[in-house]
Amino acid sequence: MLDDRARMEAAKKEKVEQILAEFQLQEEDLKKVMRRMQKEMDRGLRLETHEEASVKMLPTYVRSTPEGSEVGDFLSLDLGGTNFRVMLVKVGEGEEGQWSVKTKHQMYSIPEDAMTGTAEMLFDYISECISDFLDKHQMKHKKLPLGFTFSFPVRHEDIDKGILLNWTKGFKASGAEGNNVVGLLRDAIKRRGDFEMDVVAMVNDTVATMISCYYEDHQCEVGMIVGTGCNACYMEEMQNVELVEGDEGRMCVNTEWGAFGDSGELDEFLLEYDRLVDESSANPGQQLYEKLIGGKYMGELVRLVLLRLVDENLLFHGEASEQLRTRGAFETRFVSQVESDTGDRKQIYNILSTLGLRPSTTDCDIVRRACESVSTRAAHMCSAGLAGVINRMRESRSEDVMRITVGVDGSVYKLHPSFKERFHASVRRLTPSCEITFIESEEGSGRGAALVSAVACKKACMLGQ
């Protein structure tokens, strides 16, 4: 009897593995994704193909990295998701002549009506938060230079001027797309009239992360975010950046690689679950690469896999709870928690219980395998993109072996128990001629924006502006 049951459990697990095998990517698959990513990057950089390229390769006008001589107080704003952060950054000489960066910050959550109302409502709310922060720190009387981390696709015309191309991540505030974001912020500050600010720089969160990590390690020339969304930036040779005049030196390019796949480059790798996630998203047909990796989508992918296993009578005796059938019910943090389970399955059992399920031991094991399959594919897909960037940098610099540091931020990278190990191992397999160091950014977005502002202020002083 026991043997029969054991055989049935083994057969069930084997069927589960057959279904989950769809998520496995072979090294040849990853090399294919990497080569296609490089081709799209090239198209994004070139003037004649930029418009139709899915990977936009947006110039950021960040050319210099901090040298350690900029000092002063800077205000930093960070808008990239449902939370908005205001930070005071003091850049100065530390002990023994070292450079020191001290920060104080406060988080504000953005109400739904500000995210989806008008641009005026959104930026009025942001300036209200700045006003509140300055009151708390008794700094209303000071006109501070301000660095703005704005983590949406922007076409820069200068370091302090950028046109919002399109909202992502659930934002829909009308009247912002096609307009200068810094102008919208300046107008809102003017409307309030109770404080003055000098907006000197606007950067993407990947750029802010790279600059913040450069402060720790001067070989950091790539910034990457794996959180709600997924994106990367890197220092490109100016001669390859056709959208900006000049051939000397390097400029940081914001790849906006989340949109890779929007022209069909990933079609052969998309599964039924991916198509369902895409169809029910706020932007169907867009940001397809990001939807395979980002935390906004990972939990939902797992939920759809679990429903398939229920329908195949391989999980929960073929019956799903009402909660499990509800879109968004299986949160991405559950994926991390399930994979963090120590082996007694308590954590998995508790999560499934909150979803109205009474799982068996085998159910718990199957749910864990589903989570591992989805998150491992995410790590491997992400590795193909980064390997594409790094191999490109090595080739354009004609280096036999390139040493490089990548600064990384984002909740999936930082909080998932195995993502970074799987990701690092896969990147290294795909970049055999590179020695890569990964560092995690601390308060990256805010500190990085302030350091970019410090560079901009120093330049302005040198130019006598």
Rank of each mutant, 00 (worst) to 15 (best):
L47W: 11
Q18I: 06
K296V: 07
L386P: 06
K414D: 08
N391Q: 09
L25K: 11
G183V: 03
S445G: 09
G261I: 09
V33Q: 09
E67S: 15
N83C: 03
G264N: 04
Y413S: 00
A188W: 03
S340F: 08
I436E: 02
L276A: 13
A456R: 15
C230V: 11
E395D: 13
K161W: 03
K142W: 01
Q106I: 10
F148D: 01
L184Y: 00
A119W: 01
C213K: 00
G249K: 04
P59Y: 10
S151G: 02
C461I: 09
R394V: 06
A259F: 07
K169E: 05
E9F: 14
E93W: 06
K13E: 12
H141E: 07
N350G: 08
L20K: 04
Q26D: 13
S445Y: 00
E421S: 10
V154S: 03
L20T: 08
I390Q: 04
D217W: 08
E442P: 06
L270P: 07
Q287D: 04
M139W: 05
A232L: 07
D124E: 04
S418L: 14
T65D: 13
A21L: 10
K420T: 07
S433P: 15
K56C: 06
A370L: 08
Q26L: 12
L88Y: 10
L324P: 05
R155K: 00
G162W: 01
T361G: 07
Q347I: 14
E242N: 06
K136S: 08
G410Y: 00
L164F: 01
Q287G: 06
I130A: 04
F133I: 01
L165N: 03
I130V: 05
M121Y: 06
G147I: 02
E319L: 14
G318N: 05
T255N: 02
N204G: 03
Y273Q: 06
L79H: 04
D78K: 01
D124F: 01
K136T: 10
R155T: 00
N313C: 14
N180E: 02
A176M: 08
G328P: 11
C364Y: 00
A6Q: 08
S100Y: 10
L463A: 13
R392F: 04
R46D: 13
F74E: 01
D344W: 06
T354S: 12
R447N: 04
M139Y: 10
M107S: 07
S76A: 10
L79A: 04
R394G: 09
K15A: 14
V302T: 15
T228C: 01
C457M: 11
D42C: 09
Q18A: 13
K32Y: 05
V401D: 10
D341Y: 03
Y289D: 05
T255G: 03
R428F: 13
A259N: 07
K39F: 09
S109D: 04
E248F: 14
N283E: 03
R5P: 09
E443L: 14
A456H: 15
L79G: 03
L386T: 14
N179P: 02
R275S: 12
E28D: 09
E435W: 12
I163H: 04
V154Q: 03
Y413V: 09
H141S: 05
Y61G: 03
W99H: 13
S76M: 00
A11W: 14
G229T: 00
R368L: 09
L307C: 08
K296N: 12
S54A: 07
P59V: 05
Y214R: 15
R43M: 10
L324A: 11
L122N: 00
Q239F: 15
D3H: 13
E248M: 15
V241G: 00
K161F: 05
P153E: 05
D400K: 10
M197S: 11
R358F: 12
R358E: 06
L47Y: 12
D344E: 06
A173M: 14
S373G: 10
R327Y: 14
S54H: 13
Y214P: 11
M37A: 00
A10W: 09
K102P: 04
T168S: 02
N391V: 09
A384E: 02
M57L: 04
V89N: 05
K136C: 07
E93C: 15
T118F: 00
L306A: 13
E248G: 11
E399Y: 11
N240Y: 12
E120G: 08
K39Q: 10
E157N: 01
G68M: 14
E440N: 11
L75F: 07
F438A: 03
K142P: 01
E52H: 14
S321G: 15
S453T: 12
G285M: 13
T431C: 08
Q138A: 09
A449Q: 02
Y289I: 07
A201F: 00
R155D: 07
V101N: 13
M37D: 00
G162N: 01
I390F: 12
K459N: 15
E120K: 09
S433Y: 15
T361K: 11
L306K: 00
A21T: 11
F133D: 00
S360Y: 12
Y234E: 06
K291H: 00
R394L: 08
L58Y: 10
M235E: 04
A460N: 15
E221W: 14
L184P: 00
Y413L: 02
P417A: 12
L271M: 07
A208C: 05
R308Q: 07
F195K: 15
E339K: 04
Y349S: 10
G117V: 05
G285R: 15
E248I: 12
M139N: 06
R85V: 02
L2E: 09
L307W: 13
L184N: 01
G229L: 03
T149S: 05
E112I: 11
E272T: 15
C252S: 05
L288K: 11
L304R: 13
E17D: 12
R422N: 12
E372K: 05
K13L: 10
F419G: 07
C382A: 12
R422E: 14
V305K: 07
H424A: 15
L288A: 08
D205M: 02
D278S: 11
V305M: 15
Y215A: 12
E28Y: 09
R308W: 10
Y413W: 09
L288G: 14
I19G: 12
S212Y: 02
R43L: 07
T116F: 01
Y61K: 07
C371R: 05
S453N: 06
I348K: 08
L292T: 12
I439F: 09
T354G: 12
I436A: 13
A387C: 08
S54R: 09
E112S: 11
Q239K: 08
L47A: 14
E399P: 07
L77G: 03
V203M: 00
P432F: 14
S396I: 12
E245I: 09
S433C: 15
Y61Q: 00
L270D: 01
E237Y: 10
E248Y: 11
V154I: 00
F148K: 02
V89T: 10
S280Y: 09
G385L: 02
P432V: 13
V452A: 15
L79M: 11
A379D: 06
S398W: 07
M251F: 05
D400N: 13
E395N: 07
M87T: 09
